[in-house]
């Protein structure tokens, strides 16, 4: 019995489409909630190869929504890419799964795409620094990517096809600082699955060369809202990522968010590429709602979460006190400050 029979019965895919899917390589950036669900769906669907990149390990707080992982993975604190690999191979041994335990920075992503030549890149990250890198790598190597993100019960998704659709930088212009994250506002599993449903449907279309949905999709699964906006007019000829004269700004070292240990102070400093005002009103009100004390003046605000003191300066810089570990600081930074 053909394990893909039901998918082949679906007329737009058919037997021919399935053969096409079997030859495709999908690169998934991030193995958290979005990454685990994207990987499972595409591995079950029978893509040829899945590469999954993640820098983190499995924790108890992941198990509520990160569907591939088990209590045993959390007890062993396995790297997410490694735990995902084992479960994905058990689900479908026909698919080549390549786990990569690494921080998806510009260098790593450039190499992965140049070497692996994926047919599509799926965004399952938790921050815009990496998304802007994915956006530039996608344009540089002419590989489509699918944005997906969620917080609370809200989520959105959008497909970027190089040389055809506006890219993420056309829509966003710069990396937003200080927006809601799952570690502040929480997240429910149905919102994750709604995003993943959109991402994987579009990924399957890309695999069989069918036309994708070019609208920006957003929804609130708790409040029953769903909308699609046609953003094609926002494509900019002078966009530094996808326009006529390209510099791929997110791939330049000087535009990276810098993490540095402050010697002798048990502190990591995080410096975004451009000096700019950090939007912290929403963050402060969330923290205060949770009863976390926030000290604030004209120049900075500070608060303690997870036993670490954060000092957020109005010029965009952040200190995380109580650690000398850059990877830990990186994780905390993106968890709480987006």
């Amino acid at each position: 019995m053909n394990r893909y029979s039901r998918q082949q019965l679906f007329a737009p895919i058919g037997e021919k489409g399935q053969q096409c899917i079997r030859k495709k390589h999908v690169l998934i950036i991030g193995a958290g909630a979005l990454g685990a669900a994207n990987a499972e769906t595409l591995v079950r669907a029978g893509v040829g190869k899945v590469t999954i990149v993640d820098r983190d390990y499995v924790e108890w707080s992941n198990l509520q929504r990160q569907q591939l992982y088990t209590e045993d993975d959390a007890a062993k604190q396995l790297p997410k890419a490694i735990a995902a690999f084992a479960h994905l191979q058990a689900i479908n041994h026909d698919v080549v799964v390549e786990p990569i335990v690494a921080d998806a920075d510009a260098r790593v992503l450039d190499r992965l795409v140049a070497r692996g030549r994926p047919d599509v890149i799926i965004d399952s990250t938790d921050n815009f620094d990496v998304r802007m890198i994915i956006n530039d790598v996608s344009q540089k190597y002419d590989v489509p990517w699918i944005y997906g993100a969620c917080v609370g019960s809200y989520g959105l998704s959008y497909v970027i096809i190089p040389n055809e659709t506006p890219c993420l930088r056309c829509l966003l212009e710069e990396v937003p600082l200080g927006i809601a994250t799952c570690d502040i506002a929480g997240i429910i599993s149905p919102a994750v699955h709604m995003v993943v449903a959109h991402q994987t449907a579009e990924a399957l279309k890309i695999c069989i060369h069918a036309p994708v949905n070019r609208k920006l999709v957003s929804f609130d699964i708790w409040h029953g809202q769903y909308r699609m906006i046609d953003v094609q007019k926002l494509k900019k000829d002078d966009c530094p990522s996808c326009g006529k004269t390209r510099t791929y700004p997110a791939l330049q070292y000087e535009n990276e968010t810098k993490f540095a240990v402050l010697c002798g102070r048990e502190t990591v400093q995080i410096r975004p590429a451009q000096r700019r005002e950090r939007e912290w009103t929403a963050l402060i009100s969330f923290l205060q709602q949770k009863g976390i004390q926030v000290v604030q003046n004209d120049y900075l605000c500070s608060f303690t979460v997870d036993g670490r003191r954060f000092v957020v300066f109005s010029d965009g810089r952040v200190f995380i006190h109580g650690t000398n570990d850059i990877q830990e600081a990186k994780k905390l930074y993106y968890q709480y400050l987006g």
Partner: peptide, 8 residues
């Protein structure tokens, strides 16, 4: 109105 979020 659609607003971008970063979580995932």
């Amino acid at each position: 109105i659609v607003h971008f979020v970063g979580g995932g």
